[in-house]
């Protein structure tokens, strides 16, 4: 809550101010050749919260890093508010429910003006643009923003954010088929005490059990009243899914537990604790 208020205050402090993006020469029309030193550019679907949670990359002070990926072009979906137009540009705030971000669109040609006029206050719009980070403030230089006509697009966008987030997070982990919290990326410059993004799909039980053996986890799970009362036992896939571990790891633990005599196999691939067995 404090963080959210801080963001809002930051926006309020700078809204209407004299700050301009430093790269005014880079418009949507420029045949800008991406730098050879950088990876191929992508177009990341993001939420505003992801943008504010992003950390600064070490080698380049301009770009931000989200899920270990350099962020250049982004796409967002949200409601347009605080729209203010001038001859040369339009500024507005985009609110997608996870936060608010200030946006700026330069009007180079008639098509830009037409596009800007099509967006009314309070409308949902899809934005494509470049993320700017200057003196601790994050803004979006908009290449394109268009009204949302199919409102399924809003839900689809958030689903897409989740998917790309998980996909990029998964790419970064060295162990395949295993998910764990992202390592804390290095903090540099104006960002202090950056909290890494929470993986909503991790099993909190697993994360809270660092140091506890897999055998103990399996045994705890099978001792659960709902599981111990089942005559046929619990299928191994169900155990692996619930504990968030791979099948190979699980079967190794199961083998150990069977050797100890703590659990036994009932029918094909189903296991049961000897307690109340």
């Amino acid at each position: 809550m404090y963080s959210s208020a801080s963001q809002f205050d930051g926006n309020a402090a700078f809204s209407g101010g004299g700050f301009m993006p430093s790269q005014t020469t880079q418009g949507p029309d420029s045949s800008f050749v991406p730098s050879k030193n950088r990876d191929a550019q992508s177009l990341l679907p993001l939420t505003v919260k992801q943008i504010y949670d992003a950390s600064q990359s070490s080698d380049d002070k301009i770009n931000l890093i989200i899920d270990g990926v350099d962020v250049t072009n982004v796409t967002l979906v949200g409601r347009v508010s605080n729209k203010a137009g001038r001859i040369t540009d339009v500024t507005f705030v985009l609110d997608d429910g996870t936060g608010r971000i200030e946006c700026n669109k330069w009007l180079h040609e008639a098509v830009d003006t037409n596009e800007a006029e099509a967006i009314l206050e309070g409308m949902y719009a899809r934005l494509h643009g470049q993320l700017k980070h200057f003196q601790g403030k994050r803004t979006l230089n908009v290449f394109s923003f268009r009204p949302v006509t199919d409102f399924n697009e809003i839900a689809s966008h958030f689903t897409d954010c989740i998917y790309v987030h998980l996909y990029n997070s998964k790419l970064r982990t060295s162990v395949p088929n295993q998910q764990h919290s992202s390592p804390i990326p290095p903090t540099i410059g104006y960002q202090a005490q950056v909290v890494p993004p929470t993986n909503q799909f991790s099993d909190q039980h697993v994360n809270g059990q660092k140091g506890v053996t897999v055998e103990a986890m399996v045994l705890d799970f099978l001792h659960h009243p709902a599981n111990s009362s089942r005559n046929e036992g619990v299928h191994r896939d169900h155990i692996a899914q619930h504990l968030g571990i791979s099948l190979d790891k699980l079967m190794l633990a199961v083998k150990n537990l069977i050797d100890e005599g703590a659990i036994y196999e009932t029918i094909g691939d189903h296991y049961k604790s000897i307690i109340n067995g």
Partner: peptide, 20 residues
């Protein structure tokens, strides 16, 4: 053209596979 309703279902399916 993108059918956003169908696309959402497709991505949710991919998310389910990803978790497995």
């Amino acid at each position: 053209p993108v059918d956003f309703a169908a696309e959402s279902r497709f991505i949710l399916e991919e998310l389910s596979k990803m978790r497995a």
